[in-house]
Amino acid sequence: MRADARKNHDQLLAVARELFTKQGADASMRDVARQAGVGLGTLYRHFPTREAILEALLRASFDALTARAEELETLDPAGDALVRWLREIVAVAHSHRGVIASMVASIEDPDSALHVSCVTMRASGTRLLARAQRQGMARADINGAELFALVSALAWLNDQPSLALQVDRLFDLIASAILVKPTQACAE
């Protein structure tokens, strides 16, 4: 890609990320182009559909979460690493308001452009969970798919105006249901 085309591409993604975070997945594509300083034709050459730009944004976020999970795999205690990653994934999901259903569907649809990124991200979270389980810091009866479902539920709650103020408390409740208290781990 030429340098000017790469610059336009990156600028469009940066503006789209900001607008979609503020306005949700239905933000105006015309506003994305205008705020990026390009014409609609340039926007549509880079991203022919709204879904294409959302996929690019989500893929970048999923790949960053996968890399972050890999960094956290060395952090002790393992339960803290898992909770940090969970907080980050909920924040990322919330920053992509209105796309939770697409994200969940992508993991089940091998033909989705996001499938590989979704599966890889879920696998990285599952590794964090398994590590915490091996160290006796997380329940043994939860798997990666269930963990991902809980994250999706928290992100969905964050999108509901009447529930958004309770998300931190609900996150803490869910995290405490996943993690095992040190006294419980010693008793087992």
Rank of each mutant, 00 (worst) to 15 (best):
G144E: 14
S176M: 10
R45Q: 11
P77S: 10
E18H: 05
L128A: 01
D31P: 00
L43R: 01
V38M: 05
V167F: 09
G41I: 10
E18A: 15
D10G: 02
Q160N: 08
A78V: 05
S95D: 15
L65H: 05
T183S: 15
Y44F: 15
R87H: 14
D159S: 12
H9D: 15
R87Y: 09
A187T: 02
L154K: 03
A27T: 05
T21D: 14
V90N: 03
H115V: 06
R127A: 13
R87W: 13
Q35C: 02
A27L: 03
P110V: 09
A177D: 15
V116Y: 03
V99C: 10
S124F: 03
T120V: 14
D4Y: 07
Q184V: 11
A25T: 10
R169C: 08
G98Q: 09
R68V: 06
R127W: 02
I89D: 04
E73Q: 14
R45I: 06
T42F: 04
L54V: 11
R34Y: 07
P110R: 11
A27F: 02
V167S: 05
R131Q: 12
V180S: 05
D168A: 15
M121Q: 09
R97Y: 02
M121E: 07
H94E: 12
L154A: 06
A91N: 04
R131F: 08
M137Y: 01
Q135L: 06
A132Q: 01
A5F: 02
W85K: 06
M121R: 05
M1S: 14
L129H: 00
A132C: 12
A105M: 12
S162M: 14
A113D: 13
Q166R: 13
A140C: 07
A138S: 02
L57K: 01
F148I: 07
A113S: 13
G125S: 05
P48T: 10
N158C: 07
G37F: 08
E146F: 02
L147C: 06
T183F: 11
A164Q: 13
T183I: 11
D31C: 04
I174E: 04
A138R: 02
V167Q: 04
P161Q: 14
L72M: 09
V83Q: 01
N143L: 09
A16T: 08
T126C: 11
D141R: 09
V119H: 04
L129F: 11
D172N: 12
E88F: 02
L179V: 02
G24L: 12
T126W: 05
L43M: 05
Y44N: 05
L163K: 09
Q184I: 12
D63Q: 14
K22P: 00
V151T: 08
R50F: 01
A56C: 07
L170I: 10
A105P: 00
L157Y: 12
S28E: 08
D76A: 12
S124M: 04
G24S: 11
A16Q: 04
A67N: 08
F171S: 09
G125W: 01
V92G: 00
S28T: 09
R45F: 06
E71K: 09
C186P: 01
V151Q: 03
C186H: 10
C118K: 00
G41N: 13
E71R: 10
I178N: 01
S106T: 12
A33E: 00
D10M: 13
S102N: 10
A177E: 10
V90Y: 01
